Simulated assay, not measured.
Amino acid sequence: MTFSPPGFTYRERRLHQIMFADHDYQRVERAELGKDKSSRSHVTVLDCIEKDYTVITMRSKDRPKLLFDTVCTLTDMQYVVFHGAVHTGRMEAYQEYYIRHCLEAAIERRAFEGLKLELYTEDRFGLLSDITRVFKETSLCIKIAKISTEGGKAKDTFYVTDVIGNSVNPHIIDSIRQQIGHSIL
């Protein structure tokens, strides 16, 4: 993985920003009017009030850099993707994003109230996968995760609630500690 220096924007990312500022999407909409509807992309936007998200689903012909283009566009529109799923077939791509507006998301991230779980153990391949599987099996929802590794040790912090967003039942924590290890969590 490579990181760009502060203040540096990749050429393709900058192209997205310029095209969005130029309202290129309006020209694409007009050009799509004459095309066969079965070959066009299909985008739906639904409000999920009970979860306080907007769900965007998209079906389109699959192509290289489709995910990159989609995420750049959502970012340009000042949305924060909280969850996403991408499925591709032979010729078609299906993308689903759970998003919030940027300001609302930033406020809620800092104001989170939930149970803080700290994990400290030897790092190993598949550790994060194993931990999140245990959380899922015990119906915990990870709201914030801070993952770090230093000197071969994993130090991970998870802020969790139950699936509805309420406080976690202490019996569930006991169950998790039994599965993961009392000295680790």
Score class of each variant (00 low, 15 high):
C102M: 15
L74A: 05
H171A: 13
A85L: 03
F135G: 01
C102Y: 12
T54D: 00
V55I: 15
K51S: 14
G7Q: 09
G151W: 03
Y79A: 07
D24V: 11
G152A: 04
T88S: 15
T57D: 11
Y98N: 06
R30E: 15
I144N: 09
E104C: 07
I173Q: 08
E92V: 13
C141L: 13
E29K: 10
A106Y: 15
E50Q: 11
G84W: 10
F8L: 10
E137C: 00
L74D: 05
H83R: 15
G89W: 03
G84V: 06
N169F: 06
K136L: 09
T9Y: 01
L117H: 01
E32S: 05
C72D: 08
E96G: 04
L67Y: 09
L115Q: 11
G114C: 03
Q17L: 08
K155C: 03
L128W: 01
L103F: 09
S41A: 15
L119K: 00
Y159C: 05
C102K: 14
G126I: 06
K65N: 11
G34N: 07
Q78L: 06
L185Q: 03
A145E: 03
D36P: 00
G34Q: 04
V168R: 06
S139G: 04
E104Y: 09
F68G: 00
G126S: 12
F3Y: 05
S175M: 08
M77F: 00
Q178A: 12
R40T: 08
D69W: 09
K146S: 14
R40D: 05
D76P: 00
F68H: 13
F125S: 11
T54G: 00
Q179N: 10
K37F: 08
H83A: 14
R59S: 09
Y25G: 00
K51T: 14
D36F: 00
E96W: 06
H101I: 01
F135I: 01
V86M: 07
P64V: 08
S38K: 12
Y79Q: 08
F158M: 02
K136F: 10
E29I: 05
A111R: 15
Y94Q: 11
T2C: 04
E29P: 00
I176L: 13
D130Y: 05
V55P: 03
V55G: 03
G151L: 04
R27G: 00
T9I: 14
V43M: 11
T132D: 01
D47I: 07
F68Q: 08
T75W: 10
S129R: 10
I49P: 13
K65R: 14
K61H: 07
S183L: 09
D47V: 09
Y98H: 15
G181M: 04
G34E: 07
A111G: 09
T157S: 04
L127D: 02
F8D: 05
E29F: 04
R110T: 12
Q78M: 06
T44Q: 11
S60W: 06
T70D: 02
L117M: 12
N169Y: 07
L185H: 04
T73D: 07
K136D: 10
K153Q: 08
L127P: 03
A111V: 01
L15V: 10
S129K: 10
A145F: 05
V43E: 08
V28R: 15
L103I: 14
M19S: 06
Y25D: 07
G114K: 03
A31E: 12
R90D: 10
V86C: 09
S41D: 13
G165K: 14
L185V: 04
L115E: 09
I164M: 14
V55W: 04
H182K: 14
